[in-house]
């Protein structure tokens, strides 16, 4: 009798386990099936000739950039993305390669912009004289390299802006929609 009860109990236990398994599997299955069928959408946010920047890319980049620069706008991020496309395209023309797009852009700037910048000694001296109060009595020789570095970066920034302005002139750029709005 006890044996029969044991068997019944075991059978009921197994049945429960099976039912639980089936429920679990059905849930998993539903999750798997519905995972891909949730509504998704994307569209072109802007293009540079034949290269598109999509809304989803813009949104991702915007979210990432906000972590570093909280007050940046989406338009500014989109413009930066357009600049990247322009520089990467130019780098490709010069067959500049790298492990990542960031590396390619850095390589392009170093080779094509920074390499041609020469800050004349007179400029460094002039800057030192004009801003001597900022250097709290430091000798020219002690601060010279820092000034040169600063002026180089300043010139680099100006030339890069000029390069981008030229590149934008020859490209067909269109911003289609202000996403998030």
């Amino acid at each position: 009798m006890k044996k029969a009860e044991d068997i019944r109990s075991t059978a009921s236990d197994i049945t429960m386990k099976i039912v639980a398994c089936v429920l679990l599997l059905v849930t998993c299955n539903l999750l798997l099936v519905t995972d891909g069928s949730t509504g998704v959408s994307d569209r072109v946010a802007a293009f540079v000739d034949d290269e598109a920047i999509t809304n989803s890319e813009l949104q991702e980049q915007y979210t990432e950039t906000l972590k570093i620069t909280p007050d940046i706008t989406k338009d500014e991020v989109l413009n930066t993305m357009i600049n990247r496309v322009l520089i990467l395209r130019q780098a490709k023309k010069y067959r500049i390669e790298g492990p990542s797009p960031d590396e390619v852009i850095k390589e392009y700037i170093d080779l094509k912009v920074r390499a041609v910048i020469r800050v004349p000694e007179t400029e460094i001296e002039k800057y030192y004289k004009e801003n001597s109060s900022m250097f709290s009595g430091k000798e020219y020789d002690d601060i010279r390299d820092d000034i040169e570095k600063y002026l180089t970066e300043k010139e680099l920034n100006a030339r890069l802006k000029e390069t981008l302005r030229e590149l934008r002139k020859t490209a067909y750029i269109k911003i289609l929609s202000k996403q998030g709005q």
């Binding site: 509504g39 998704v40 959408s41 994307d42 569209r43 072109v44 289609l176």
Partner: peptide, 21 residues
């Protein structure tokens, strides 16, 4: 979808593509 839009754009004839699922 994103890759598809970017790829199709390279065809050079599109001004906008939007995909909704």
């Amino acid at each position: 979808i994103r890759k598809g839009i970017k790829r199709a754009f390279l065809k050079g004839i599109f001004e906008d593509i939007s995909v909704e699922v």
